[in-house]
Structures are given as C-alpha cells and as structure tokens.
C-alpha cells in the first residue's frame, strides 16, 4: 500500500518538474486575440452592432457573445475573415453585401452643419449656410447623419449601376 503511494507521488513529482521547467522554456504571452479582432473591425464605433464601440464588440465576438455578422459596415468580407480568425462558421445571408452610401438632397439642405459633426469618418463637407456634400468613398452608410438632419434631406442610397461597377450575376445553379 505504502509502495503504491510512493511510486505514484514520485512519478507525479517527476513529471511535474519536467512540465514546470518546460513551461519556462515555452512561456508565451497571452496572444492578443481581442486586440487582433478589434484591429480588423472598421473602428468607426458607429454602434450598428449594438455595442458602444468596436473594442467591446471585439471582446463580445471573442468570447462568443456576439455573432461575427453583427457588423454591417464590414459587410460579408469582414464577417468571413472574422469567422476564419475565430474558427467559427458564419452564415452571410442576412448581411446585404450591397454597400449603401448617404447623399444630400440639394434642394432641401439649409447648411445647418449638424450632419458633418456626427459623421464618424468626416465624409460630409459643408459650412454654415452652405450646401453640404457627401463623399461616397468615405461614407460607410452608418446612418448617423440621417437621424441628425432636421430637414431629413440626407438618405441612404444604393450605388448607381454603371458599366464600370456592373458585375456578372451568378449563373443559375442546375
């Protein structure tokens, strides 16, 4: 009886030493997964995912509280790369991959400057009492300006289809 206890404890101790020593050799800092994910997010803190900012959204995604498709500005591309990063599967159906951009209705704009103050990416240019304009390239379609505008002359539109941005649709699957 005494022998078995002695053998087992000595075996356990020996292996414990080896592991303790190995732990020092292979010490690796906690890999910054949350920071990685946050750096992938658009970083506009637009709040469309329901979290205050991209940081908290990243944290929620890492420990599985939020689905990787909860970030509309990122669209399908971001959802897919996040799914690969976190090794989860993502159904991209609810994410419309068609980007929406804001545009100002010139006839209604009174130049009240409320919209370009709230725009997270400074996509709107305008001055007091001057006509405002939205830069399509910089606009992520977060919709903050639409709510901020008193004259509701800003609306989100789909990009107009021209010969340059037209793409072949998918062939009918047999």
């Amino acid at each position: 009886m005494f022998l078995t206890i002695a053998v087992l404890t000595s075996l356990g101790l020996m292996l414990g030493f080896i592991l303790g020593y190995a732990d020092k050799i292979f010490a690796v800092e906690e890999d910054p997964l949350i920071k990685d994910v946050e750096s992938m997010l658009p970083g506009t803190h637009c709040g469309q995912c329901g979290f205050t900012g991209c940081g908290s959204a990243a944290e929620a995604m890492v420990n599985g509280e939020a689905d990787v498709t909860c970030c509309p500005p990122g669209g399908q591309v971001l959802a897919k790369s996040l799914a690969d990063k976190l090794g989860v599967s993502a159904d991209l159906s609810n994410l419309t991959s068609v980007p929406l951009t804001a545009s100002v209705e010139e006839s209604l704009c009174t130049g009240c400057c409320r919209c370009f103050r709230v725009c997270p990416t400074d996509a709107i240019v305008g001055a007091n009492k001057q006509l405002h304009y939205v830069f399509k390239d910089a606009c992520t379609g977060c919709g903050k300006c639409v709510t901020a505008c008193p004259e509701n002359c800003i609306a989100l539109h789909q990009e107009e289809e021209t010969l340059d941005n037209w793409h072949w649709p998918k062939p009918a699957v047999v």
Binding site: P42, G43, T44, P73, G74, V77, P99, P120, T121, A138
Partner: peptide, 15 residues
C-alpha cells in the same frame, strides 16, 4: 470593399 474599410478606419482614427 476591404480597401474602403481600411480607408474609412484611418479617417475615423484621424477624426
């Protein structure tokens, strides 16, 4: 789209 994502990220960080 991803290039635009990086561009808007740099804009919002600058802002």
């Amino acid at each position: 789209q991803s290039r635009k994502g990086e561009y808007t990220k740099s804009l919002s960080e600058a802002r």
